Amino acid sequence: MKEQIYFALDFSGQKEAEQFIDANDLQGIPVKVGMELFYREGPTFIETLKKNGHRIFLDLKLHDIPTTVNKAMKNIAGLDVDMITIHASGGSAMIQQAKEGLMAGASSGRPPKLIAVTMLTSADAAVMNNELKITGNVEDHAVHLASLAHRNGADGVVSSVDEVPAIKKACGSSLLAVTPGIRLKGVSADDQKRPSTPSRARENGADILVLGRTVRDAPDPAVAYNHVIEEWNNGNA
């Protein structure tokens, strides 16, 4: 179902994003709004997207002291988006305060899902071990952060497809697994160190896909988007 597949609006501004949507007949699809676009256009663009029928994943990856995150989440909750991200590495108090802020600020009685980022899919073991000085392997660290997030109120986590089975085993099937870095076969991985295909994501237990360049940079973005949906639904590689 396309409701489980969010297209990343990785554009510099509202005009460019809307032109892309209209030119490729992608009106009303679920979309992810990240820092680049939100910091330029702000909440008014979120309202415009909602009026145009888009479900919204607001990917801001908040990571700050617990009180600041709590206050930010109270404001964000009023936007009535589907999901909002924090970094699980912010720790238990920050995760708890993020959840409390969303609950307090939700005007509709349905707060956004709190999604905690584990390890960015642009990072690999070399980055984790040598630059961040975190020992062990990526999967174990992702499971650790997912478990931390789950215990402290997160509704789901972001990880690569590779880590989803271990995360589900540790945390249970109710924890949403959101997987970016999705690529159709033959599409460049770019800066993603741990990409995967839609069919493999489904096989590994992912609940929600995030698409970016595999659609945006395709010769025919609408065809690419529909290919992802078909592969997700039917397992056709």
Rank of each mutant, 00 (worst) to 15 (best):
Q14N: 09
K61P: 01
R194Q: 02
F20R: 10
D64P: 11
E47T: 06
N152W: 08
A77M: 03
N152V: 05
N52L: 14
D220H: 06
R213D: 04
I76F: 02
F45S: 04
G156S: 03
R213T: 12
A17L: 06
R202A: 08
M73N: 07
V178W: 05
P221L: 01
A189Q: 11
R151W: 06
A222L: 13
K74Y: 06
S108A: 05
I167P: 08
I182A: 01
I56Y: 00
I21R: 09
N52R: 15
T135W: 13
N24E: 03
K99Y: 07
A142I: 08
R110W: 11
D191Y: 07
R202C: 02
M128W: 02
R55I: 07
A237G: 09
A222R: 14
E100P: 07
G109H: 00
M103K: 13
R40N: 14
A126H: 15
K2C: 12
I65G: 05
D64M: 12
V210K: 01
Q96G: 09
D22Y: 13
F11R: 01
D59L: 03
H227A: 14
E203D: 07
E47S: 08
E36L: 06
P43F: 04
Q27T: 15
N204A: 14
P195D: 02
I182D: 09
T197I: 03
I134A: 13
S108N: 11
G90W: 02
